[in-house]
Computed example of a mutant assay.
Amino acid sequence: MFMSRWVSRLTTAVAAPLAGAATLVALTGCSLEYREDICMSDEYPVLTVNGTGSACVSKGEQPPAGYVRYPEGKVPQQVDDKWDVYWRTHTLDKDGDIIDAPEAG
Score class of each variant (00 low, 15 high):
E36V: 09
A104H: 08
R88H: 08
R5C: 08
R5N: 14
C39V: 03
P45M: 01
P63L: 02
A15L: 15
S54L: 02
D95H: 10
G29L: 05
R9F: 10
D100W: 10
A55Y: 01
Y67N: 01
E43G: 06
K94T: 14
D100A: 14
V75K: 00
V46R: 00
P76N: 02
S41I: 15
V7N: 04
A13G: 06
G96F: 02
E61F: 09
S8D: 04
D95L: 08
T12P: 00
S41T: 15
D93K: 01
V25W: 09
H90T: 06
N50H: 04
S4Y: 10
L47Y: 02
G66Y: 08
R88G: 15
C56M: 02
Q77M: 01
D81F: 01
V7A: 10
G20C: 14
W83C: 03
A22H: 00
Y34A: 07
A22P: 00
W87F: 11
L24V: 12
Y86F: 15
Y44Q: 05
A55L: 10
K59N: 09
Y34E: 10
R9T: 07
E36N: 08
P71M: 08
W83N: 07
D81E: 04
A101M: 09
T28I: 12
P71D: 12
G96E: 03
G29Y: 07
M1I: 10
I38V: 14
S58N: 12
G66M: 05
G73M: 09
I98F: 12
V75C: 01
Y70D: 00
V49T: 08
G20Y: 02
A26T: 11
S41W: 15
P17E: 09
V49D: 00
M1Q: 12
P17L: 04
D97F: 07
L18D: 10
V85C: 01
D37L: 06
V57P: 02
I98K: 12
E36Q: 14
D97S: 12
T91I: 08
